[in-house]
Amino acid sequence: MEVKFDEAALKTANKIISRYPEGKKKSALLPLLHLAQAEFDGWLDVPVMDYIATLLAIKPIEVYEVASFYSMFNLKPVGKCVIEVCHTSSCWLRGAEEIIQHLENKLHIKAGETTADGKFTIKRVECLGSCGTAPMFQVGAQYYENLTTEKVDTIIEDLDKSGKRTTYFDEVSLTAHK
């Protein structure tokens, strides 16, 4: 299957590219990787990265080296909802490990794994800037804060029911993505 943005996504991509000065469109790489991840099942397969390279007229290696550097880009398939739990100091002090434990027990997987039905992935992540509302996790662009195990149960149920893939681009959109 040929990898290609649909018309709306391509329009967004071009609008992003147009922000930068002549000859500097490589600057659009990170935003386009976010867009691509949202458009193509939540992760960046090699053909997807190659497609982005073509759009920006750069070498594929320039895309791979960037995609593998930043922790928000998934280079392997992930569940429909990636639960990114902060485990750094301020969250750790207020019970992040209990939240992770609870998620692991509830979903019967370890952090770093995806449920057999492909619905959920648990990911341990570093400080998300939500220290004053710890513990917390992020699913797509949404922050879930001041978590308790009861709150986690409700959130997981809601996400399970919706069955939607959550991505950073999903809940909110750049102005260009209308």
Partner: peptide
């Protein structure tokens, strides 16, 4: 020309700034 480089995890703030 000015850029606001915002950490990716703060994605939900992007539309607030763009608005």
């Amino acid at each position: 020309t000015g850029f606001i480089y915002i950490r990716g995890e703060y994605f939900y703030i992007v539309p607030i700034l763009e608005k």
